[in-house]
Simulated assay, not measured.
Amino acid sequence: MTILKEIDSRALELTIISAESLSLKGKRSVKKNAYAVVKTQRGDHFATGMDPENGAYPSWNHKFSIHMPMHEPLFTLEVRCNYSSCGGDHAIGSVRVPVSDFTAVYFPCNYLHFLSYRLRDRYGERNGIINLSVKVKQPAGATTSSAYSSPVAGGWKYGGAAAMGKGQGGVAFGVPVGKQY
């Protein structure tokens, strides 16, 4: 089972850095004890510690090592606060982070991505921003002959056929077009 886990998943080094402009219902600023939770689709949960000092601008800089299956398209980040003036443990906002933001064919393994996402409260309203970094770790024993992610380099296999033909690598981009009936 351990061998299967290593083959079918990639190790992510995820750092929850900070959040900005957090508020509670009624648009009151968060005063203290904000923390972040990472949730994977298979049910894993990871949480930062609480920031008791920085209120609406918490800073955690908490690093996690997470094994995610290759077929998992996203994970969820949620920011919460825990203190009596907001009624105990309260969800402030969340975001669904697409894995494709940092695992496309043209990103090398061990490349450090710095990302920021808009948080939304349970009603879909904007409620702050979360800042994070993520790195897809190269599997142990993988060759480093290729600078870019590929099955040889141990990267995340994300695409299908070669875009350039005759086995040459490449990237194809598409633009979605809405229905105009």
Rank of each mutant, 00 (worst) to 15 (best):
W156H: 00
E125S: 10
H67P: 01
G43F: 03
A161E: 00
C81D: 08
V136G: 05
F102T: 08
H45G: 00
N61W: 06
P52Y: 04
N54Q: 08
S29L: 13
M1H: 12
I92T: 07
N127G: 03
M68I: 14
L112A: 02
T143A: 00
P52N: 06
G128D: 02
V177F: 15
D8I: 14
V105A: 00
R80L: 12
K166M: 01
G88H: 14
P69N: 10
K31E: 10
S9Q: 10
A147K: 12
L4F: 13
Y111F: 13
S59R: 14
A47Y: 07
T15K: 09
R10Q: 07
V175P: 03
I129T: 05
F102M: 11
K135E: 05
S9W: 04
A91D: 08
K5I: 05
R126E: 05
G160C: 06
T40G: 10
R122E: 09
L4C: 12
A140V: 14
L115H: 02
M1P: 13
A163K: 01
G167A: 00
P52I: 06
S29C: 09
I129F: 03
G165M: 02
G170L: 04
V37K: 15
A91F: 08
G49M: 11
K27C: 07
L24C: 11
E72A: 12
I66W: 08
A163S: 02
K32V: 03
A163N: 01
D121E: 02
R122W: 05
S146R: 11
S9M: 08
H71Q: 13
E13V: 15
P69D: 03
L77R: 03
Y148R: 10
S18W: 07
G170Q: 00
T15F: 07
N33K: 12
G169L: 08
A34W: 12
Y83K: 08
T103I: 04
C81A: 14
E125L: 06
G49H: 13
Y35D: 00
L74R: 12
K157M: 08
G88I: 13
V134Q: 00
P176W: 01
L74C: 08
S29M: 11
T103H: 05
S59Y: 09
S85D: 15
G93C: 01
E13Q: 15
A104M: 13
D8S: 15
Y181Q: 05
G43V: 04
V99N: 13
Y106V: 04
R126F: 12
L22V: 00
V95M: 00
A56C: 13
Y117M: 07
I17Y: 09
P98T: 02
G167L: 01
W156L: 03
R118H: 02
M1S: 11
E72L: 06
V175W: 10
N54M: 06
V95E: 01
Y158L: 09
G167Q: 04
G178L: 14
I16Q: 01
D89E: 13
G165C: 01
R120P: 00
G88D: 06
H71C: 10
I17K: 15
Y83S: 05
F173R: 06
S23G: 09
Y181W: 04
F173I: 08
K157S: 08
S133R: 03
R96C: 09
S146E: 14
A19M: 09
G160Q: 07
F46Y: 15
A147H: 07
P58W: 04
G93K: 00
Y158A: 07
H62P: 08
